[in-house]
Simulated scan of single mutants.
Amino acid sequence: MTFLSPDLLDRIHSRAEETDRLNSFPHEDLAELTAAGYLTAFVPQEFGGAGLTAEQICAEQTRLAQAAPATALGINMHHIIVGLGRHLVASGIDSGRQILEGAMNGDIFAFGISEPGNDLVLFGSMTEARPDGEGGYSFHGLKVFTSLSPVWTKLMTFGRDDSGDDGPHSVFAILDRERGGFTVRDDWDTLGMRGTQSNSTMLEGAHAPAEQVLQRVEPGPSKEPVIFGIFSYFEVFLAATYLGIGNRAIEVAAEKVKTRRSVLHQDVYANDPDIRWRLASAALRMNSAAAEVTLLARDLDAGRDRGDLWYPQLSAAKNAASEASLYAVEQAIRSTGGSSYSNSNELSRLYRDVLAGLFQPSDQESLHSSWANVVLGPITE
């Protein structure tokens, strides 16, 4: 059973090319997805939502990305924050309730974590979190890749608090757009994923009162609910979204080679053994990556304890999905010929969109470092 109807996805797909060409935000997509209840689909039923599981959201994100990758990637960030809310509440941390209740009240959540040049990403911030003396914080620093920047109502962000005697801590909080204290820069002019409109956000004292502080934790990888909640849903939902790009590329190529004819062989390319091998190899890579993502999502739903392997395995699934999808798009382009080099060809857009997966955490360097520690242990003196 699927949540998003085929007709809705067809309409979203019909607008994807124009959104990319105009470098604009897909407002119509958002309106239709909101009306369909998709922004509250991951909210538990006891809070009034549809109560879909992580596995089900992954499946829907893959389908949405097949229709419009940038729309899916933007909405992905909202689902991640809702997932964080779910995890906090399940862990006995009541600050997560505001996320779930906010989503039910129409809030759109954005993800304000990444900073320029900061390869610690979630595990340490360069943004200042200054305490207000009443349990709240004001935030000062630059966040990049802030998807949904034209429309978010709440921004989940974090910064570094150096004020205490207990050493530096990372402070995670929810900011209200209506309170101000920030500037959104109009700087999203990228190769692909243009519809996410992930403009940079300069935090200029944006304030979160005490009740909107989610957690204050020591920097670095940990099992703290706010860290694990963000990391786990970010990686698995991102992976599911990239799967949609690879799947769509194979669909487009399969349609094309059934009609594209070889003058040399006087037959359609779908009967050429080399072309068949290319698309089959792409489908095999996608099949393996999809299985990896699905299993992780099921384990998140079941609350399975993978111990110290959770973080490296989540990173591995994201990388498997993004790399498999990149491979699938490349094989699709090779199979369909020079027409795919045109900007008007969907495969050209899919190629530009899938490249974003190279830069989103966890990247290849971080992944291999993590797995080297799994296999060999830390570097010795």
Score class of each variant (00 low, 15 high):
372 A>E: 04
119 D>Y: 14
185 R>A: 13
86 R>E: 06
269 Y>L: 15
313 Q>S: 11
356 A>S: 14
147 S>I: 11
279 L>H: 01
129 A>R: 04
145 F>T: 10
107 D>K: 08
204 E>A: 08
352 R>M: 12
121 V>N: 12
225 P>H: 11
227 I>S: 10
169 H>F: 10
6 P>V: 03
229 G>R: 05
217 V>D: 10
161 D>V: 07
163 S>L: 05
356 A>Y: 12
153 T>D: 01
322 S>Y: 08
26 P>L: 00
144 V>D: 04
5 S>I: 08
139 F>K: 02
138 S>L: 03
55 E>Y: 05
184 V>L: 12
149 S>L: 07
276 R>T: 13
375 V>E: 01
91 S>N: 06
102 G>H: 02
160 R>G: 12
126 M>E: 11
24 S>C: 09
67 A>E: 06
22 L>N: 04
69 P>D: 02
278 R>V: 09
63 R>K: 10
259 T>F: 09
341 Y>R: 15
363 D>K: 12
194 R>P: 00
300 L>S: 00
358 L>K: 15
66 Q>N: 07
171 V>E: 05
379 I>L: 14
274 D>C: 09
12 I>M: 04
33 L>T: 03
85 G>K: 03
274 D>Q: 11
228 F>H: 11
98 Q>A: 14
265 H>P: 01
51 G>W: 09
378 P>K: 11
321 A>G: 01
120 L>Y: 12
226 V>G: 02
217 V>M: 07
162 D>S: 14
309 L>R: 01
197 Q>M: 14
191 L>H: 10
192 G>N: 04
25 F>Q: 00
355 L>R: 14
228 F>K: 13
289 A>S: 09
103 A>M: 10
323 E>F: 10
262 S>V: 12
331 Q>T: 10
